[in-house]
Computed example of a mutant assay.
Amino acid sequence: MRILITNDDGINAPGLAVLERIARTLSEDVWVVAPETDQSGVAHALSLNDPLRLRDLGQNRFAVRGTPTDCVIMGVREIMRDAPDLVLSGVNRGGNLAEDVTYSGTVAGAIEGTILGIRSVALSQAYGWETRDNPSYEAAEHHAPALVEKLVSMQTPAGTLFNVNFPARAPDAVGGVEITAQGKRNPDSLYIDARTDGRGNPYYWLAFQRTEMDPAKGTDLHAIMNGNISVTPLRLDMTDHEFMRNLSDKLA
């Protein structure tokens, strides 16, 4: 099995090294194509107005000055002589839960692999507010190999990818695996941090704060909050088919 791995935290991210070790438990044919710099939050962006610069790091490792989507395209279309059988994206520093999937470059790497007809899995490691400066990837590294092996052995519908999140717990404290739906965050967790620079000019940071959450059972947020691994199947087709039928009746 040929495996292409990427991420959105950048070529030097600790989570990428973890993912490479995970991939090598499944195959010896592993290729790393990751962004030169941190691309967190770029979603499924393509670099259309800037050239893609490629740096060969040796031993099938490459850095691309571009987005995770660029990296997967470069890996499949330019770098690897034969297409991979599997795309793994991550291990992201922090969970990609609920609406995060629409912002996440990690999930976007798996989306691009799926668009190219390759089985794809996004992996993310949640952390707590207390451990955010030095998150542990032990849960992901311990549990991912067996879980990914099971996922890739399944018959997966065309246009479907897996979004996997690991809880911020020691490996032996993880409760189990839950198949989940995408949850919904409290929108007040995102706020604008307004500041002024040394010249008195205003500037702004997008920031997150703790908010009370009571996530619905069966969602990714609920699974992670309760110490379980969340596996969410996502589809490329974002059409609201039920509402489409209702809309057709109303506009006919």
Rank of each mutant, 00 (worst) to 15 (best):
V42K: 00
V42G: 00
H44F: 12
H44R: 08
A45Q: 09
A45D: 07
D50C: 09
D50G: 08
L52G: 13
L52S: 13
L52H: 07
R53W: 09
R53S: 12
R55V: 14
R55K: 12
D56T: 07
L57N: 11
L57Q: 11
G58P: 09
G58R: 08
G58M: 08
R61L: 08
R61D: 07
F62C: 08
F62L: 11
A63P: 02
R65K: 12
R65A: 15
G66Q: 03
T67I: 01
T67P: 07
T69V: 15
D70L: 14
D70M: 12
V72E: 08
V72N: 06
I73A: 13
M74R: 11
G75V: 09
G75F: 07
R77P: 09
E78I: 11
M80F: 12
R81A: 15
D82H: 15
A83E: 13
P84C: 11
L86E: 03
L86F: 01
L88M: 06
L88F: 04
S89T: 07
G90E: 01
N92S: 14
R93Y: 04
R93C: 12
L97R: 02
E99A: 02
D100C: 10
D100Y: 09
V101C: 00
T102P: 04
T102G: 06
Y103M: 10
S104N: 02
T106I: 01
T106R: 01
V107R: 00
V107E: 00
G109Y: 04
I111R: 09
I111D: 03
G113D: 06
T114I: 05
T114H: 06
T114R: 03
I115G: 05
I115W: 12
L116H: 01
L116W: 02
I118F: 04
